[in-house]
Amino acid sequence: MPTITYVQPDGTRREVEAPVGSTVMLAAVRNNVRGIDAECGGALACATCHVYVDPAWMDRIPPAGEDEADMLEGVAGERRETSRLSCQINVDAALDGLVVEIPAEQG
C-alpha cells in the first residue's frame, strides 16, 4: 500500500498508508492527521483540504483542473506554486512516498 508523509507546520512528520483508489485527503482524515479539515468530504466544495506538495513530486501528479485551480485562489492559508486540494489527488502506486506539507491555516 502506498505510503504518504504529512508534514505539519511545526515540522512534525506522519506516515500514513493510503489505499489505492483513495485520495490524499481521505487517507489523512481517516488516520487523524490534523490540519486537513475536508469539510465537504471531497466534493470540491470547500477548499479546507489544502496542502503543499513536495516540489520533487509536482511533476508526478496530474495538474489541478480548472475548478480546483480557481478554488486554490481562495484558500485561507498562504497560496504557493505547490498548492493543491488534497481531495483531488488520487492515490495510486506511483504516489508511494509522496510528501505533502499542511498549511498553517485552513477554511
Binding site: P19, L26, V29, R30, N31, N32, C40
Partner: peptide
C-alpha cells in the same frame, strides 16, 4: 452520508469509500 444519494446510488462509489474515519483513528 452525502455520497449515498449521489455517487453510491449511481454505482460510482463503493462502501469502503464511504468510511468517515479508520479503526486507527
Amino acid at each position: 452520508r452525502p455520497p449515498l444519494s449521489k455517487g453510491f446510488l449511481a454505482g460510482k462509489t463503493s462502501e469502503p469509500d464511504l468510511a468517515l474515519r479508520s479503526d486507527a483513528f
